[in-house]
């Protein structure tokens, strides 16, 4: 990971920490980063240098207004303004990793076909804490490719309980 990505991650961490909503900002940035990774059109539009930066920032505001904290919107606007849209997922990963190291927690990336409820996230967090004997922060990503069930990645471990994987295993068995 290059120094520029680390520098922007440190800046985002500092802003969120100063605002006192690190966890919330982290979660919002994480979701935005995953959306950006899966949506080519959005990524290309926000990264298009031929579009005026004001226009690209306006798109960000239209997308996130009322759905994220002001800190999250400010960080994303900053990255769009300096032409670092393509690096946002890496910056977010670095930010999440840094936060996890400081707080002594692990980040569990949880993919599901539908969004998990708060109750389900809490239960899963507890289950993963017990399993890893460490604090765990769950980041839920809605991914239709999963079809059903959940795929959790925590560190190098993957706990795959998705319908997609079961179908694939069944197909491979033939």
């Amino acid at each position: 990971m290059n120094n520029t990505v680390k520098a922007y991650a440190e800046a985002a961490f500092a802003i969120a920490s100063a605002e006192g909503n690190l966890s919330e900002v982290e979660d919002e940035l994480f979701r935005f980063g995953r959306i950006l990774q899966s949506n080519d059109e959005l990524r290309e539009t926000l990264g298009n240098q031929r579009l005026p930066v004001e226009r690209r920032q306006q798109i960000v505001e239209d997308l996130l207004d009322g759905k994220t904290t002001r800190s999250t919107m400010a960080i994303i606007s900053l990255l769009v303004n300096v032409g670092r849209v393509a690096d946002i997922p890496k910056i977010v990963d670095e930010l999440v990793g840094r936060s996890a190291r400081i707080t002594g927690t692990q980040v569990a990336e949880v993919r599901s076909a539908v969004a998990l409820s708060d109750d389900q996230i809490a239960k899963l967090t507890e289950a993963l804490k017990a399993r890893t004997n460490s604090d765990v922060t769950v980041r839920n990503i809605v991914d239709p490719k999963v079809m059903g069930g959940i795929v959790t990645q925590i560190g190098d471990s993957v706990l795959d309980g998705s319908v997609r994987t079961r179908l694939n295993q069944l197909r491979d068995a033939f």
Binding site: V114, K123, L159, G161
Partner: peptide, 20 residues
């Protein structure tokens, strides 16, 4: 896989992770 089935699958997964 309607919403109810999705919820059952998620709950089942969480239970399975917890039981292990």
């Amino acid at each position: 896989l309607d919403d109810a089935a999705q919820q059952r699958l998620i709950d089942s997964y969480i239970s399975q992770v917890g039981s292990q």
